[in-house]
Write a protein that binds this DNA or RNA. Structure first.
Length: 889
RNA sequence: GCGCUCGUAGCUCAGUUGGUUAGAGUACUACCUUGACAUGGUAGGGGUCACAGGUUCGAGUCCUGUCGGGCGCACCA
């Protein structure tokens, strides 16, 4: 096979890697810091450095690459900046798990040794996801790749921390936080998921001091009573008002604790008495502060009970609960238990029940940062696509809470705070301090904690561009043009980028936020390892090709809704790739003799089909440009799909076959140019969607430039000269033939006339214009409808014939196929009957409309006119059908 | 509880200022291996646009309610 000959099936395996190398070798992905072209910038949401690509990434990346390639082809200095995230918690978990297999524990190794292991792990697996992105076709500027723990990014992180601290927007304090007892770290509110579970509500008797009475408290977490420092009732609760100020004796531990009153208590729930555990419950914490209650912490960091729990020390929460209940029952203090639906907070990462835990943590005071971040979205300066996500964003921003940013982990940005061992002063500094700036002691100890991963992610749009230095990159590409991400991280990430961007980079981080849905399995379930329903995009790429996967994702992503992934659909788009391949194969075979073709086409010499395909191309280009501009990705993809398959392959290629196989060299030369030119534009139009196959085929075309990836994206603007060759009138004329052929096919199909059976046809029309068009184009009918005898005229006989009436603009024609001796007439009678019924029904509807006074009075004149014309047509049609039916009987 | 969102063909979904006969892919049926492609071609069947009201000359589209999914946020111990 010579290089110009294509196999009859598209084999993505031979095409994809090869073309990726070609692009890389020629530096096509590189964006310039200084350029005369307008900038377009898009920062990749950094995937976890040790992760591997899943379908969600694939969707995310493909959308980004689509816009990058489109903008690059549209003359922009397009930057797609890649990077990876250190992903504190998940990476640490993965490595810990791995070490455990070797019998090694994190704490046994110690911080330094453990971090060495994580870095080793990162070096080994850190590029895996990057390689996977390349498989997908990402045209990212890999020379600029960033990692969240890179020196310059870390410097940005420190700068931000220190300046927020100096502004008083970062503070340290002892607070009740969400505690993951497996990881032994605090986690933020966002990292906690609330699961509804069946639980039990236990009613426990607390003896009132000096009385033979009890206060009954209800609780779902009885073990927390070990940390109780009060019981609380509503101040106006008549049942208990008399007891306020007295004490109860805490069962099991015998501690005396006060009975207090607070409006918070709901008198109607349970017994109306609430036990107060200020160190282990968020509501109790608030009340505890109001009433200056004692805070007794009963937990160790690993979730076991500490010495404050007395005899229960050392037990984990669940065993302690069991024991506490047993002991209470033994003492007759367990009044009753009842089933209770409760919401349990669960750590997103480990699935452990989150315990509220009192500890020293760092927080960002968020309200001052949130205000401008709300404003830019309210004012439309930052635009969410689809718009509805702006509501979600604003709702959260309006209820935002201070952000706990410290994590008791080792892997991450260590908090740049040092404690003076001598004077207890806290030094917060960008550079590692050598001495306490208060007492000059050299006895400094750095805070052990690291920052929440999202702290560094929040700076990503500018830390990746060299900020805080005013680099050329930063000046050129900030604010970025577009951010593409899933709705699951609007709060985690998008909100924080907006807050930080405004505060530090002094401008919004991006103009548009494209929010796509999450990918679910074909049944709509979340893809997860435990369900085993995950689809590995790399398997799909291997099997169907990256382009097919990309097109599947892009054609499915609409209006920000979640999307169900089906392999069936992927198969369909794999077939589309094959279709494109074979259409080009056909073209190239027929263009063999045209080694180089020039672009200029001569409207006078073009066939009707040439005029028609160019006019369709023009419409397609206009639509696609419009759709991409308004981020309507699936519409753009589907428009191209149907143009290529339905218009170009099904009609145009069939129409030009007689020309390409014929002897009319003059005509053939012209059509060759149109064919090659159209194909060239098809490749360019499709390239951002399916880069591999389009580059491969583009390179084989007789009309081409350097590379598809850097050729211009065709629009009705920049392609005006070529598109203007299409004569509207002639394009329209082709529709006449197309309609007639469709009618013939319909007659054939419904009457079961075998495709091999040649038929005689009569095209009957009073229109001289149609008559001329049909006469000129008899060959099209011969080839495309297997027509033998051909008669054109007016008032041609339709006896014992199938008939279809066609209306084209003002002109009408009857497509007549004599059936006598060919087939039984029953099928045609049935077909006409069906058409007749439909037409009659339509007449009824239209007639009703037109005889409605209010319609005639209120509807705009053009609508009324259309309806009138329609009625006329329908009436005529029914007459013709009825006559035809008569002649069949 | 508050907020958002969806309900269109067997399945997956389009349907953007309300306006001809509600579309596509897939599945299904019939026919066809014709010199790009059977990962193909041609034709066909298939919908009370969840339901009930309302606005309007006109509603899949706008409004209200009901039913049924999904999601987010906050929750009574």
């Amino acid at each position: 096979m010579s290089t110009n000959e294509l196999s009859d099936r598209y084999n993505h395996l031979e095409v994809e890697d090869k073309n990726y190398l070609f692009w890389m070798k020629n530096n096509y992905f590189k964006a310039e810091d200084i350029s005369t072209k307008p900038p377009f910038s898009l920062i990749m949401p950094p995937p976890n450095v040790t992760g591997s690509l899943h379908l969600g990434h694939a969707l995310d990346q493909t959308i980004q690459d689509l816009f990058t390639r489109w903008k690059r082809m549209s003359g922009f200095n397009a930057l797609f900046l890649p990077g990876t995230d250190h992903a504190g918690i998940s990476t640490q978990l993965v490595v810990e798990k791995e070490l455990l297999k070797q019998g090694l524990k994190r704490r046994d190794l110690g911080r330094e040794k453990f971090l060495e292991k994580v870095w080793e792990w990162k070096e080994t697996y850190g590029n895996r996801i990057i390689e996977q992105c390349k498989k997908l076709g990402d045209s990212a500027d890999w020379g600029r790749i960033k990692f969240t723990l890179d020196d310059d990014v870390s410097a940005a992180v420190r700068k931000v921390f220190v300046s927020l601290y100096k502004e008083g927007l970062i503070y340290r304090g002892q607070r009740l936080v969400n505690w993951d007892t497996q990881l032994e770290t605090a986690v933020s509110d966002l990292e906690v998921e609330n699961e509804e579970r069946k639980g039990t509500l236990w009613h426990i008797k607390y003896p009132i001091e000096g009385m033979n009475e009890f206060m009954i408290v209800a609780t779902t977490r009885p073990e927390t009573m070990l940390g109780d420092t009060a019981v609380c009732v509503h101040p106006s609760d008549d049942r208990y008002r008399k007891h306020i100020g007295k004490n109860v004796v805490l069962p099991l531990l015998g501690r005396k604790i006060p009975i207090i009153a607070d409006e918070y208590v709901d008198q109607t729930f349970g017994s109306g008495v609430v036990k107060m555990t200020p160190a282990h419950d968020f509501n109790d914490y608030e009340i505890g502060k109001r009433h200056k209650l004692q805070f007794i912490n009963i937990l160790n960091t690993n979730g076991t009970l500490n010495s404050n729990a007395g005899p229960y020390q050392g037990l984990k929460v669940q065993p302690a609960r069991k024991k506490v209940l047993e002991d209470l029952a033994a003492q007759g203090l367990l009044e009753k238990e009842e089933p209770h639906k409760q919401v349990v907070p669960v750590s997103e990462r480990t699935g452990q029940v989150v315990e509220p835990y009192l500890s020293d943590q760092w927080f960002v005071a968020i309200h001052k940062l949130a205000r401008p971040a709300k404003h830019v979205v309210e004012s439309g300066t930052i635009e969410f696509i689809p718009e509805m996500w702006a509501k979600t964003y604003l709702h959260w921003m309006n209820n935002i809470q201070d952000w706990c940013i410290s994590r008791q982990l080792w892997w991450g940005h260590r908090i740049p705070a040092w404690y003076c061992e001598d004077c207890k002063h806290v030094v917060v500094s960008e550079k590692n301090p050598v001495e306490c700036d208060k007492c000059k002691s050299k006895n400094l100890k750095q805070d052990d904690d690291v920052l929440d991963t999202w702290f560094s992610s929040g700076l990503w749009p500018f830390s990746t561009l060299g900020w805080p230095e005013q680099t050329e990159s930063f000046k050129t590409f900030y604010p970025t043009s577009l951010m593409v991400t899933g709705h699951d991280i609007i709060f985690f990430w998008v909100a924080r980028m907006i807050m930080n961007g405004l505060h530090f980079a002094k401008d919004i981080p991006f103009r548009h936020v494209y929010i796509h849905g999450l990918i679910r399995d074909s049944q709509g379930r979340k893809m997860s390892k435990s369900l085993g329903n995950g689809v590995d995009p790399l398997d799909m790429i291997e099997k169907y090709g990256a382009d097919a996967l990309r097109f599947t994702l892009l054609s499915s992503v609409a209006s920000g809704k979640d999307l169900k992934f089906s392999e069936k659909r992927l198969e369909g788009y794999r077939n589309f790739m094959n279709k494109i391949w074979n259409a080009t194969r056909f073209a190239l075979t027929n263009l063999k003799e045209y080694k180089s073709l020039n672009e200029s086409i001569n409207p006078e010499a073009m066939s009707l089909a040439d005029h028609w395909i160019i006019s369709r191309l023009k419409e397609t280009q206009e639509q696609v440009d419009d759709y991409l501009d308004s981020h309507r990705i699936s519409e753009a993809a589907n428009t191209l799909y149907s143009f290529v398959w339905n218009d170009f392959c099904d009609w145009y290629l069939e129409f030009i076959k007689p020309i390409m196989y014929g002897d009319d060299i003059y005509q053939k030369n012209e059509t060759a140019k149109v064919l090659a030119g159209t194909l060239n534009r098809i490749m360019r139009l499709l390239h951002p969607f399916i880069p591999f196959i389009t580059e491969e085929l583009y390179q084989k075309l007789p009309i081409k430039n350097e590379a598809c990836i850097v050729d211009a994206y065709p629009t009705s603007e920049n392609d005006r000269v070529w598109l203007s060759a299409s004569d509207k009138e002639k394009a329209f004329e082709l529709n006449v033939i197309k309609e007639a052929i469709s009618a013939l096919r319909n007659i054939r199909g419904e009457n079961q006339i075998k495709p091999g059976q040649k038929i005689n046809i009569r095209l009957s029309t009073a229109s001289i214009r149609l008559n001329e068009i049909l006469t000129k184009n008899q060959s099209a009918f011969t080839k495309m409808a297997n027509v033998d005898g051909f008669e054109i005229g007016s008032n041609l006989s339709a006896t014992k014939s199938a008939l279809q009436l066609i209306q084209i603009g003002q002109d009408k024609m009857s497509v007549i196929v004599p059936l006598e001796g060919l087939v039984d007439l029953g099928a045609e009678i049935a077909r006409l009957q069906k058409n007749l019924e439909k037409a009659q029904k339509d007449i009824e509807i239209t007639h009703k409309k037109l005889s409605d006074d209010s319609f005639m009075k209120n509807a705009p004149p053009d609508i009324v006119e259309t309806e009138k014309a329609r009625l006329e047509q329908l009436v005529e049609q029914t007459q013709t059908i009825q006559e035809s039916l008569e002649r069949l009987k």
